[in-house]
């Protein structure tokens, strides 16, 4: 078995709250193997986005603290000096966000953005960078790239903008691409195009991909492994097949059941999970899902660990040893 590309251990992200620190991420661990696609799913407030922002040093809030370990190709990212981290971000780890305009400036052309990305990390001439930009736009499927390279972001549709952002992300052949809700703002037919594109790029660039999303369909379509998050922790992890075919955690089961499907039997009533996802400041001690869980019992006042053989779950129902 090869070395993991990216290994996160006991990640904690906390913010200063009105009444003491608020833990947005509370002991998250996972690994990404080379060439693997990891899907991270969860609802609002599960900590799925803030965890990756935290370990890449992208949280601006001065009151935020990030602890734990995040080893990327043998180097520790947490505590890494800003300068060094900046060279890792963009070149070795690229990010794509939900709203492509987060990454694009309306006053510059699409080509400028890509060329700038290349020139920030490599010393090549403007002309060569522009040439690379055109190649990348062609690769992500922008029609007529030699002309479109001089277009401004507003002249692109939403799907084309996201393609341009992916072209920027790929400009330096990153080893890891982190895509945070990359298709959420897009229509379903455009989403299909972007998902296909991401999978194709894994083949051609050999990048590992981490997709953060609320949409389990997206994960099922493109990921090899899934990490289900709730209340700042991973509650279940495994291959897509393991997690979606035989979900272990009651939260995963509830979430899967509440998605209205386009095929299969049309249920009279959708099964629901009572209550709402909890805010990180109101998280109970013990299992965060316990207040909404139909299978709650005495043991749930203690935090279950993420355990298992390959297919992991943080629930006392599946834990090998239940506390007395």
């Amino acid at each position: 078995m090869s070395e993991p590309l990216f290994e996160v251990t006991d990640l904690q992200v906390s913010f200063r709250g009105r009444s003491g620190p608020v833990n947005a991420v509370n002991g998250l661990s996972y690994t990404v193997m080379p060439g693997q696609v990891l899907g991270v799913v969860g609802e609002s407030g599960s900590g799925k986005s803030v965890s990756s922002m935290g370990l890449l040093g992208l949280i601006r809030d001065r009151g935020a603290t990030v602890t734990g370990s995040a080893r990327f190709q043998g180097r520790e990212l947490i505590g890494m000096p800003d300068r060094e981290l900046r060279s890792v971000r963009g070149r070795e780890i690229a990010m794509v966000f939900q709203d492509p305009m987060t990454s694009l400036t309306p006053v510059y052309t699409v080509g400028w953005h890509i060329a700038e990305q290349i020139r920030a990390h490599e010393s090549i001439s403007k002309k060569a960078a522009r040439h690379r930009a055109i190649e990348l736009l062609a690769e992500v499927g922008i029609p007529d790239p030699a002309r479109r390279v001089d277009a401004y972001p507003h002249e692109f549709s939403g799907g084309m903008r996201q393609r341009a952002v992916i072209a920027m992300a790929l400009a330096c052949d990153p080893a890891l691409l982190i895509a945070d809700e990359p298709t959420t703002a897009l229509d379903v037919t455009t989403q299909a195009q972007i998902l296909d594109l991401m999978l194709r790029l894994r083949e051609t660039h050999g990048s590992s991909i981490m997709v953060i999303t609320h949409d389990m369909g997206v994960v099922s379509e493109i990921a090899d492994r899934v990490l289900v998050m709730y209340g700042g922790r991973a509650v279940e992890a495994g291959t897509c097949r393991e997690v979606f075919h035989t979900p272990h955690h009651p939260y995963t089961r509830g979430l899967l059941a509440s998605v209205p499907r386009i095929g299969g039997e049309k249920l009279h009533r959708l099964p629901t999970i009572p209550g709402a996802p909890i805010a990180s400041s109101e998280r109970p001690t013990g299992c965060a899902f316990a207040p909404r869980c139909a299978e709650r019992h005495d043991a749930c006042t203690m935090q279950p660990l993420l355990t298992g053989d390959g297919h992991l779950s943080a629930c006392w129902l599946t834990a090998p040893e239940v506390p007395a």
């Binding site: 379903v188 037919t189 989403q191 299909a192 998902l195 949409d215 389990m216 369909g217 997206v218 099922s220 379509e221 897509c240 097949r241 979606f244 075919h245 035989t246 899967l256 998605v259 499907r261 386009i262 095929g263």
Partner: peptide, 9 residues
């Protein structure tokens, strides 16, 4: 056909 399906077996 473009809707991503959850392959749940």
């Amino acid at each position: 056909s473009a809707v991503p399906r959850i392959d749940d077996g």
